[in-house]
């Protein structure tokens, strides 16, 4: 990327770089002065956005980092904590459990939807389906609905008299389990909501992606005598690499960030069976008076999400 040194005549711009704004006939100036306008204009245009981002993103993030080194109840003056809040995340079993629960949720939020998406894609292949627009609208619907509404809907699905038990009874497995109240089932039940939420997204993504793959590759595979599985393994899967990267990033980050559904349905319960980082940050910061600990959790969560995103981007970028 070229940088234009403003003010001086030393500015060297490769000839290929388009010059903006090139000529201002009304105000003839020496060539040395022209770049001044070039840096002035971008900054002027960026000013509102920069002000917003600095005030409501950059400074708060730095403030969170600062708070994470203190013990603070949110009211009385805080005291220096050093790395104690971070050490607690490693030592305190209750805090460690938050991240174990996140791992479980990743299986439900990422692995199941991606598998479902790939399954549908392999079944449908490249056939153009009539009425696909309608299917797509329906499959994608959960993405447009508030997660609070999703939680309300699933609260009823999982109730004792709810739809899940009704379907199980129809299948011959009579059940009166209150799924969200069970120490064993609450976390998988939350996870399944994530699977439901993100499967349609993965399906739509992959079905769109598969249309983009060069048909000649399929013809070549067929000439080579590839079966359906080999065709999927060697043509479809590599061809879907960009879509897989997007799906993996979106779903893993959604699992790590899960808050809304847990907050509405279980508040982390029963006990701490469904506690996740997002919920613990909220509770510690705003109800339990452990602001420093909440800030440290927020920092760790942010770093984790950055690492996961960078890792997926790197892996998916290889061999392209």
């Amino acid at each position: 990327m070229t940088k234009i040194i403003h003010g001086g005549g030393r500015a060297t711009v490769p000839p290929a770089t388009p010059r903006l704004p090139r000529i201002r006939p009304k105000r003839p100036r020496g060539p040395a002065r022209r770049p001044v306008a070039r840096t002035g204009t971008p900054l002027l245009f960026l000013a509102p956005g920069l002000a917003l981002v600095v005030a409501f993103v950059v400074l708060p993030v730095l403030h969170t980092l600062y708070l994470s080194f203190f013990h603070w109840d949110g009211v009385t003056p805080g005291s220096w904590a050093g790395l104690a809040n971070y050490r607690a995340i490693l030592d305190d079993p209750e805090l460690r459990a938050l991240f174990t629960h996140s791992l479980v949720l990743i299986v439900f939020y990422a692995a199941i939807p991606i598998a479902a998406g790939l399954l549908l894609t392999s079944l449908l292949g490249r056939t153009r389906v009539r009425g696909m627009t309608a299917y797509r609208v329906v499959l994608f619907l959960p993405q447009a609905v508030s997660l609070v509404v999703v939680a309300v809907a699933w609260q009823w699905m999982y109730a004792q008299d709810g739809v899940v038990n009704q379907l199980l009874s129809l299948a011959g497995a009579h059940s009166r389990t209150a799924w969200l109240g069970s120490f064993t089932w609450a976390l998988p039940a939350i996870g399944l909501i994530g699977s439901w939420l993100l499967s349609g997204l993965c399906m739509v993504l992959f079905l769109a992606g598969v249309q983009r793959i060069d048909p000649a590759l399929y013809d070549a595979a067929r000439v080579d005598g590839a079966g359906a599985w080999q065709e999927f393994r060697h043509v479809t899967l590599p061809g879907l690499r960009p879509e897989l990267a997007v799906a993996l990033t979106l779903t893993v980050v959604a699992a790590l960030r899960s808050f809304d559904v847990v907050y509405v349905l279980t508040k982390g319960g029963p006990g701490t069976a469904t506690s996740v980082p997002g919920l613990a940050i909220f509770q510690r910061a705003f109800t339990n008076g452990q602001v420093g600990s909440a800030a440290a959790l927020a920092v760790v969560l942010t770093v984790l999400i950055f690492m996961v995103t960078a890792l997926i981007t790197r892996i998916s970028g290889e061999g392209r």
């Binding site: 981002v53 409501f56 993103v57 950059v58 400074l59 708060p60 993030v61 403030h63 969170t64 708070l67 980050v253 790590l256 960030r257 808050f259 980082p277 997002g278 940050i281 909220f282 910061a285 602001v291 909440a294 800030a295 959790l297 927020a298 920092v299 969560l301 942010t302 999400i305 950055f306 995103t309």
Partner: peptide
Amino acid sequence: IGLVMPFEATIIPL
């Protein structure tokens, strides 16, 4: 930054 950063990272100071 905001594209990857979770809202939790800013909500406490906000």
